[in-house]
């Protein structure tokens, strides 16, 4: 991702402070930016983000739905999370295979933070490196939460409505959406 948004989100005018804002992930922000601001085609945008075209479409679609939800329901939007690394800050080490960043940006990076090897390189990618992860989603309020590997989503309880959550994008999630929890 080239640049994160330099502000935290939006609030609707004339409504009381929103307690349950729509969370727009950084990758979703980036997808909207690439498609609707830079006017890239989906294929170009997917390449730019280093992900496959279908994955890009999924992210973009989810972004549009969230924005529409915020518009129609008058909910706030906050930019948050997602699985995004800004690669200018990351390095990888060939000797031990780790990735590390470098908070003291003025100094040049010469050694691996872990094993001190000099066999390091700046993290390359086409502008951005993205790992897609699964999300658990609450069928009632739509709250999303990063899925913990090895823990079924329905063991996760939504903190707002006490509902068992579903894995996002599965038939469970799509099919039972209208059902109560």
């Amino acid at each position: 991702m080239t640049n994160p948004p330099h502000f935290k989100g939006f609030t609707p005018i004339g409504l009381p402070e929103e307690k349950n804002p729509v969370v727009l992930h950084y990758e979703e922000y980036e997808a909207v930016r690439l498609s609707d601001f830079e006017l890239y085609t989906q294929l170009e945008a997917a390449k730019e983000m280093g992900i496959s075209r279908p994955t890009y479409t999924r992210i973009y679609e989810s972004a549009r739905r969230k924005i529409a939800m915020a518009f129609v329901k008058g909910r706030a939007i906050v930019f948050e999370g997602g699985k995004v690394y800004f690669d200018s800050e990351w390095y990888s080490c060939k000797a031990c295979g780790c990735w590390f960043n470098h908070p003291a940006k003025e100094d040049e990076v010469k050694n691996c933070g872990l094993c001190n090897s000099t066999e390091i390189q700046q993290f390359h990618g086409n502008g951005k490196h993205t790992i897609t992860v699964d999300y658990c989603v609450c069928p009632q309020c739509g709250l999303e939460k990063v899925h913990t590997h090895g823990v079924p989503c329905n063991k996760d309880i939504c903190p707002h409505c006490n509902c068992a959550m579903h894995r996002k994008g599965t038939p469970h999630h799509n099919g039972f959406r209208i059902n109560k929890c």
């Binding site: 031990c96 295979g97 780790c98 990735w99 590390f100 960043n101 470098h102 908070p103 003291a104 933070g113 872990l114």
Partner: peptide
């Protein structure tokens, strides 16, 4: 961690 100037190391 960035603001605290602490280095992060991710082991894959």
């Amino acid at each position: 961690f960035d603001s605290l100037q602490i280095q992060l190391i991710v082991l894959n």
